[in-house]
Design a protein around this nucleic acid. Structure first.
Lengths: 232, 232
DNA sequence: CAAGATTATTTGGTATACCAAATTATGAAT
DNA sequence: ATTCATAATTTGGTATACCAAATAATCTTG
């Protein structure tokens, strides 16, 4: 007796979402954190049964995830979790870098004082957790920091595209983050630089700081991906 | 007796694509050129019947188009062709601008001499058609010019994301292009500048030229969208 | 015993059936 | 005639059924 996906104790009339979207959310989360490993199969019948739904909405979810680049659907094979090549990861990072530089530029015009405050708070959390052994916490706040900057642009397409690139890069960046526990001070310094640019609403400084920050990430991840692949 | 979508006289064994993808291609083309007007309904039964397929693959196509931002699917209403607000169009253009600037930068490293030749040829076509009354031809070559630059980066995610933004912007840019027949010389001058940057593999010049070119487009489209909406 | 052919089974792709919500049409009451 | 309530119908969401291709298993044959 598989449990249904969500407790439907929400507002019964409003905000009903398609099942496919909900399933996509569930699977996306599992893929992003590596619970569903890259390359692993997602058989339609088995998975839909496990989720307590039929194949139809599961299929919709898989199509959504395919369009996001998280799932690969070959003609007559089981859908598999995307397993991006090193080159593809770098390509994704290059675009992500440009998106965040743009976001920094735009955010200087659109960000509110409250939003700056929120980002400062995130930065504070990262400083506080800099010595934490739980690398996952530090990493998640790091991601939230970047997301918050993009959100401050109020540019919906930019926010969505950035989120999608983030999903595809999450795993690679997490693995990179785990090996750089010793170098968190550099991350924090770069974040501080970005934050300073935002505070002064200095478009060039902010976008350049973000660009430089991402370039660092590209360099780090490139070296990791060059190694023979030892996974989590 | 509705005709089937495609003649299956292709290689029978290889490259078989899902019906949903093919339908998405058909509908995307119709949406992009305005054959399916913004805001118009796409009833599932009626449309699937007209295309000679069942609702299932049509629905897959609609989901793909929704994820591309070309179709809006509300909870219990017929899917409708997206009708982006002026603010959204500008937001899209801002991102597209950053994507093309990035492409120009990257392409300077990756573009081949053949590809430069191809782009020069496109430029030559535009020069030749500068006085053509068929604004559609000039416009399409214009789009191809930009696509070719992005393609030269060999960055698959960038190419795909750019293509999606292009789809969503196609109509707005076409309408803008039609009102600027008199100012094609400016477009050509800016393209020449971009091309020169590519020839010299000058990353800064190329990306700046593309950025400036897109900024011009944003300005033009903004003024058009500010007017009361008279359509095609 | 090994290798190839053939059958059985699994799996994705598509079509159809069913349901619930929403819209439209219809009719009664003021 | 207008307005509100109610019934009929349309429409999207989900489940199920069916088919063809691909894979796995089995059997036959050299």
């Amino acid at each position: 007796m598989p449990a249904s996906l969500i407790d439907v104790s929400e507002i019964p009339s409003l905000s009903r979402q398609r099942l496919g979207d909900q399933i996509a959310d569930v699977l996306r989360k599992q893929i992003v954190v590596g619970e569903l490993a890259p390359g692993s199969r997602i058989p339609e019948r088995e998975t839909s049964l496990a989720l307590g739904v039929s194949r139809t909405p599961l299929r919709e979810a898989l199509l959504i995830l395919e369009s996001e680049g998280l799932v690969t659907m070959a003609p007559a094979r089981s859908p598999i979790v995307a397993n991006p090549s090193p080159k593809e990861v770098v390509d994704l990072l290059i675009v992500q870098s440009a998106l965040e530089a743009l976001a920094g530029d735009c955010a200087c015009d659109t960000i509110t004082e409250e939003e700056i405050g929120h980002i400062e708070e995130l930065h504070g959390q990262m400083v506080a957790q800099a010595d934490s052994t739980e690398s996952i916490d530090f990493f998640q706040v790091d991601m939230a920091f970047h997301q918050a900057i993009v959100a401050a642009t109020k540019n919906a397409p930019l926010i969505k595209t950035h989120a999608q690139y983030n999903s595809r890069l999450w795993r690679a960046r997490y693995l990179s983050s785990r090996r750089r526990v010793k170098k968190r001070s550099l991350t924090l310094a770069e974040h501080g630089n970005i934050l300073e640019g935002l505070r002064n609403r200095d478009r060039k400084r902010t976008s350049r700081a973000l660009e430089k920050h991402l370039k660092t990430a590209i360099r780090n991840i490139s070296t990791i991906l060059a190694e023979p692949g030892t996974d989590a």
